[in-house]
Design a protein around this nucleic acid. Sequence first.
DNA 1: GAGTGGTCTAGACCACGGT
DNA 2: CCGTGGTCTAGACCACTCC
Lengths: 247, 247
Amino acid sequence: MTQDAIERSTFGFRPLYMQVRDVMMSRLIDGIWKPGTIIPSEIDLAREMDVSQGTVRKALDSMTAENLLVRRQGRGTFVAEMEESNILFQFFRLESDATSGSKNFPESQVVSVSSRNANEFEMSSLKAEVGEKIWHVERRRLLDGQAVVVESIFAKESSFPALGDTAPMPNNLYRLYSETYGKTIAKADEKLKAINANANDAKHLNCEQGTALLLIERIGFGLNGEPLELRLSRCLTANFHYRNTLR
Amino acid sequence: MTQDAIERSTFGFRPLYMQVRDVMMSRLIDGIWKPGTIIPSEIDLAREMDVSQGTVRKALDSMTAENLLVRRQGRGTFVAEMEESNILFQFFRLESDATSGSKNFPESQVVSVSSRNANEFEMSSLKAEVGEKIWHVERRRLLDGQAVVVESIFAKESSFPALGDTAPMPNNLYRLYSETYGKTIAKADEKLKAINANANDAKHLNCEQGTALLLIERIGFGLNGEPLELRLSRCLTANFHYRNTLR
DNA sequence: GAGTGGTCTAGACCACGGT
DNA sequence: CCGTGGTCTAGACCACTCC
C-alpha cells in the first residue's frame, strides 16, 4: 500500500489498521492466501504496506478474533482451516449429555441430492434470483452411533457448480466449500425452535411422531458476507444438547 | 502497583497487562467500581500502577471485549450495567419470528417463591453444600402479550439472603443481583433441548400437552467465576425463536 | 480549550519453535 | 542461533465530548 492509497479525510475516515485489514481480507477472499498456509510475517507485511508493525498487528489481531487466522508464537500466522477439530467448537454445537462424552465429528448418511428452482424462502435466505437453480441435499447424521439429526441443505448452483455430482459427498461440507470452491464459511446466523417430529423424522431418527425436536435454521455466510448455504437441521435431543455461552 | 509487585520469572510468567487486568477485575468484584460509574482515565490508571498507558489500554480492551466495561470516546470508561437495552442482546435471545418485530424486554408474572434444601442437580450446578437452602422462583414470561416462557430459577440463600422477601419481584433479576447484592452475572453457559409440554406447561402457555418446547438450562456465573443462578426456561417457540451467531 | 479515548509510530526486549 | 509472534514503553497526533 502506498501513502497515496491512504485516505485520511475526516469525511470518510477509516483507520489505517482497518485499511490494512481490508487488503488482507481481500487476499483471503481472492484465494491468494489459502486455508492452512502461512502468511508473511508482521515485519514483511509492515514493510510491504509501508505501515508500522503495530498497525499490521492490530489488523491481524482483529482477524484472529474472528477465527479467520491462527497465530502461533515462534512459527507464524496461518489461514484458518475447516478442520474437524476447529469446526467442532465453532460450528457444531451438539454434544452428548453424558459428561464423559468426548466430542466427536458426526457421521453423515446422504439420503438424496437433487436440484430444483428456488422457492420463496430459499430465494430470500440465499439472495437467489427468481427461478434460480438450487441444490438440495438431504442427509442423516449420527453421533456416537445414534441417528440424531435429519438435515436439509440448500445452496445455489451458481455458487457451487456440479456440487451434486460430488461422490462420495463428504462428511464435512464446509471444508468442501472451502477447498474445492474457494468459498469459506466465515460466519453463520442461526434461529432455533422446538418442533414436533413428523413421519419422516420419526422414520429417520427412530422415534415416535410428535417427539420434540430442535430445529436449527442456519444461514452460512462467506468471507465477503454473501449468504452461501441454508441448512435446516432437525435434532433429536433426548441424549444430546446444544451448548452456548453468553457474555 | 509497585515494581516489586510485578512477577516476571519464566516459571509463573503472567503478562503485565494481565496483572493490571487482575487488579481492575478485583475492583469490580469488590464493588469498588460500581456498575454505571466512570472509572479513572487511562493516564491516571497508568500513573497509579506505574505502567505505560498502552499496557493499561490492553487490559481495558480485554475487559471491554467481555462486556464488563464500556468505553466512550471523549467521555471515559464506564462499568457495564444490567440495563434492558444491553441485556436484550447479551442474555435474552428469544425474538419474534416477524421480521418487523422490534425487540422488547419480556414482562414477568411470578407464580411462586419458596425455599428448600438443594437437590443433587442444584448442588452440582450451583456448587452448593448438602442440605444448603436454595431459593426457587417460578414465573411466567410474556412477550408481545403472549405467554411464551415458564421459568424456574434457583439460587443459593447464602448468595442472596432475603431474596424471597423482595416485593415486588422485579422483571430484571440480573439487575437486582447486581445492584442489591453486588453480584454481577458476567457469563452464562446454556444447554438447549427440545421437550414435550407437560400439563403445567400447557396450562401456563395455553397450548396442548405434548407441544414441542425449547428448554434452556442456564447457569449464570459471577465476575469471579462462581455459579450464582440456575435457570430452567421452557419456551413456546411457535411464533418466536432463539437467535445465535457463530464465528 | 481541556480532557478523554483512538490511532500510529519506532524501538526494545521476551518467549517460543525450529535449525 | 535465528526468525517468529508477544509484551512493553514513550511519545505524537487525531476524533470526540463537554464546558
